[in-house]
């Protein structure tokens, strides 16, 4: 369980308390400036809280050695920048940095991550030759290579077209089914409604709603947070938002 208890970060988050369970996909949604990325980075242990705490199985993250924390929580920032024109396999290999394991185990973990993201045909290609969707998969494979219990990704679907979004969210769902905790910042409310098990709605640094998507993303919440009169159409799992 990854928990935030009264988490406050000056000017960005205010008294956020959430309990995230592994084995499911949690989506963090909210308007621009709501504090989604801040919450995700704080859950990854990358931001020192002003008050409150983030705990992993009841241990405060700040007390975990950085390498230990890195082995348990994988984090994919929004920027997706990579400074050098690495080959896919080299990039994915960076995910092994927190581990002090032998070459064979590292190789297996990298091969696994590449297979999970269906990147085998691209493994030796340089990043500059990949399309946006391939690059997003390669970046996520880097996180998987660490074999973390938790996967925290900041808008991993943002730059992708619909088909690639669907493919990637299915991969992430599979990972959650295997027992990992998956936490995503997403902008697309329909994506959160149809694919997340649990949704956190943030607005101006405060937690407005949390729960199963149909509750947390009710039309009332959308009206209150986004100032939009919207209604959900369609069947569960295939809902669309009509404005």
């Amino acid at each position: 369980m990854l928990e935030a208890l009264g988490l406050t970060i000056a000017h960005r988050l205010h008294e956020v308390t959430v309990q995230l369970r592994s084995g499911r996909v949690t989506a963090i949604v909210g308007p621009n400036g709501a504090g989604k990325s801040t919450l995700l980075a704080a859950l990854a242990g990358l931001i020192q809280p002003t008050s409150g705490a983030v705990t992993l199985t009841s241990h405060p993250l700040t007390q975990l050695p950085p390498q230990e924390r890195a082995r348990r929580i994988g984090y994919l920032p929004q920027s997706g920048e990579v400074a050098w024109n690495l080959a896919v396999r080299t990039l994915v290999g960076l995910g092994r940095l927190p581990h002090r394991t032998d070459a064979a185990e590292n190789y297996a973990a990298v091969a696994d991550a590449i297979a999970t993201m269906q990147l085998e045909p691209l493994a030796d290609r340089a990043l500059s030759t990949l399309s946006g969707g391939e690059r997003a998969r390669a970046l996520l494979a880097r996180v998987l290579a660490t074999r973390p219990q938790w996967i925290l990704a900041d808008e991993p679907l943002a730059a992708l077209d619909l088909a690639h979004q669907q493919a990637l969210i299915r991969r992430l769902r599979d990972l959650a089914q295997e027992g990992r905790g998956v936490v995503l910042v997403v902008h697309d409310l329909a994506l959160a409604m149809n694919h997340a098990d649990h949704v956190l709605v943030l607005d101006r640094g405060r937690l407005i709603a949390q729960g199963p998507p149909q509750d947390a993303l009710s039309e009332n919440v959308i009206a209150k947070v986004w100032n939009l009169n919207a209604s959900w159409l369609g069947q569960p799992g295939h809902k669309a938002l009509a404005l």
Partner: peptide
């Protein structure tokens, strides 16, 4: 090793355990 991690940016490097 920390320089390698830094290729992914400062935030990702810290998430990989770089101080």
């Amino acid at each position: 090793p920390a320089l390698d991690a830094l290729a992914l940016g400062e935030a990702a490097a810290r998430s990989l355990g770089v101080d």
